[in-house]
């Protein structure tokens, strides 16, 4: 073996200071070292390639698949939540619009009812006003008629007092009517 010759030639230089050969270059143990290295490393390689590494690879793969699956599920759940939120917002907007509509409707009907009531009241009041006016004018006319008779009576009484004689009622009435007309 080429390595043996190079190793042993170097060994003589290294071994000069120490009694035996410099241990790392001492070829007496090379055979047993190589043998045991072959056994242990061979077994290690077999165990690693057949058992350990496929197992670790499987573990890592499983974990990656699990993480990917979980992420997928989380993404789906998030989409679902977003859809639910959108639906919720839509319902909310609809309800709000409906409420507004309802409110306005109520407001409108209330206003209409108030208006109708007001109109009825107004017309009622107008009617009452008109009735009162009619009564006033009637009373006025009656009063005016009374004024004629009062004036005639008063004129007759005054003339009777002044002149001391009775005057014809018809003459007084025409005279009063003429004075009042003037």
């Amino acid at each position: 073996m080429a390595s043996n010759t190079t190793a042993t030639t170097q060994a003589h230089g290294g071994a000069a200071d120490h009694g035996g050969a410099f241990p790392p270059f001492d070829s007496t143990h090379f055979a047993s070292q190589l043998l045991w290295l072959a056994i242990t490393f061979g077994l290690l390689y077999l165990l690693m390639s057949r058992v350990a590494l496929p197992r670790v690879g499987r573990i890592l793969e499983n974990r990656a698949a699990r993480i990917a699956g979980d992420l997928e599920a989380a993404k789906a759940a998030q989409a679902q939540a977003q859809a639910a939120q959108v639906a919720h917002e839509k319902t909310l907007a609809e309800a709000r619009a409906k409420a507004q509509e309802l409110g306005q409707e109520a407001h409108r009907s209330l206003a209409a009812a108030t208006e109708a009531k007001r109109k009825a009241l107004e017309s009622d009041l107008n009617a009452k006003l008109a009735a009162a006016d009619a009564k006033i004018s009637e009373t006025k006319a009656k009063a005016m008629a009374n004024v004629d008779s009062i004036a005639t009576d008063a004129a007759g009484a005054i003339v009777e007092q002044l002149t001391g004689r009775k005057v014809d009622a018809g003459a007084i009435a025409s005279a009063v009517a003429g004075a009042l007309k003037a």
Binding site: H29, A31, Q33, W36, T40
Partner: peptide, 15 residues
């Protein structure tokens, strides 16, 4: 020579 040496022992320990 296939002797089990201290080096062989540590090879087994490493394994």
């Amino acid at each position: 020579d296939a002797s089990f040496t201290n080096a062989s022992l540590f090879m087994v320990i490493i394994f």
